[in-house]
């Protein structure tokens, strides 16, 4: 039993202790290790178990080299292109689907089925997905492959094409695969957020005569702002660490011609290549960490909680204005 006025602060510490212990035991060492590796001369497996020492060529040598590493620079650009082009359609489609499936007025039959089915692409391992798509888009002079057959039938192309020597074709394939694997996931996350909204809010909107779109804009979106923030941040992190499909779809080094060589593919090649440059891999990871951190901070800032009150006011005001407008329209229509 707690007496009144007792501070509950200690429970904050107690409840977060398991996480902290888990972190200290399993993650601290690997992270510190990664951080330090970038300043060493660790190249080759034999160095892994030797004690670390500062890179004789200079403590920032590896970082300095990386800043002049064209392949790394290009891989950052590639990563952004692949991420942005799949994220925009992904979040749009996920939002629309989530809106449809949580709108009871639409009375969509079988929506339970659709919701469940749309997540399924995420269940298959990336390795299987990659095999499937590379088989689908394969080409040779005599055996054109299913995609070519289909596109020819649809009249999209005149003659079979070798998709995987074409940089932009390969990029679009990766973008499509990423979209296809993740829109269902994003949709489910958003739906779970929408289901957490108190039904009273929707009831109130109903009474106000809001239509489906208005409810979505003025009730749903503001209410799932926290979940949207989660979606943006995790997609940013996941997208900028995009790895398995670009690695597995072609020969493993972002072929053709680095078109899908993301930074994570670059890092993987450094860390697990024939002669691993652990220091380069670690430094590249840290650079990516900083980029992700800065971008996340911007997203957090743009969607920050402090504005919530103000935003709320704004929404209220807009709602009022809207209602007034409705009234005016109705009054006109009644004449």
């Amino acid at each position: 039993m707690k007496r009144k006025g007792v501070s509950y602060a200690k429970w904050g510490y107690i409840f977060s202790a398991p996480f902290a212990i888990g972190f200290l035991l399993f993650m601290l060492y690997p992270i510190v290790n990664t951080f330090l590796m970038g300043f060493t001369d660790m190249v080759g497996v034999a160095k892994l178990t030797e004690p670390m020492h500062v890179n004789p060529a200079g403590i920032f040598k590896v970082y300095n080299d990386l800043l002049h590493n064209k392949t790394f620079g290009k891989s950052i650009v590639t990563t952004f292109i692949l991420w942005i082009l799949n994220f925009i359609p992904q979040i749009t489609v996920a939002l629309v689907l989530a809106a449809w499936f949580t709108n009871d007025r639409l009375k969509i039959k079988g929506k339970g089925f659709f919701k469940v089915v749309f997540y399924l692409p995420n269940i298959i391992t990336a390795a299987s997905v990659a095999v499937l798509y590379s088989s689908f888009f394969q080409y040779s002079k005599e055996v054109m492959g299913p995609a070519n057959e289909l596109f020819m039938k649809l009249g999209l192309i005149d003659q079979p094409m070798d998709f995987f020597v074409n940089r932009s074709a390969t990029r679009w394939i990766v973008i499509f695969i990423q979209f296809w694997m993740w829109y269902g996931y994003t949709m489910i996350v958003l739906i779970s957020g929408i289901l957490g909204i108190s039904p009273e809010l929707f009831e109130a909107a109903d009474i106000d005569g809001a239509n489906g779109f208005q409810k979505f804009l003025y009730v749903t979106i503001p209410s799932i702002k926290t979940i949207l923030l989660y979606t943006f941040i995790t997609s940013l992190i996941g997208g900028l660490q995009m790895y398995d499909i670009p690695y597995l779809l072609t020969q493993g080094n972002g072929e053709p011609d680095g078109a899908i060589r993301t930074t994570s593919v670059f890092i993987f090649k450094q860390a697990f290549g024939n002669v691993p440059s652990y220091n380069v891999a670690a430094a590249a990871s840290m650079i990516m960490f900083i980029i992700i951190g800065i971008l996340s901070a911007i997203v957090f800032f743009l969607m920050r909680d402090k504005d919530e009150a103000e935003l709320h006011k704004l929404i209220k005001r807009q709602e009022k204005e809207y209602k007034a407008k409705l009234k005016a329209e109705k009054a006109q229509g009644g004449k």
């Binding site: 080759g44 080299d65 392949t71 020597v165 053709p256 011609d257 450094q270 290549g273 002669v275 380069v280």
Partner: peptide, 30 residues
């Protein structure tokens, strides 16, 4: 990879070899 880019007409021979060298230099720090 670079040979394929040249053969399929994506770039000329010189660029292909230049890009190959660049990739090797950037991928293997040693």
């Amino acid at each position: 990879d670079q040979v394929r880019a040249y053969t399929s007409g994506q770039k000329d021979r010189e660029t292909a070899i230049k890009d190959f060298k660049q990739t090797v230099a950037d991928t293997f720090s040693t």
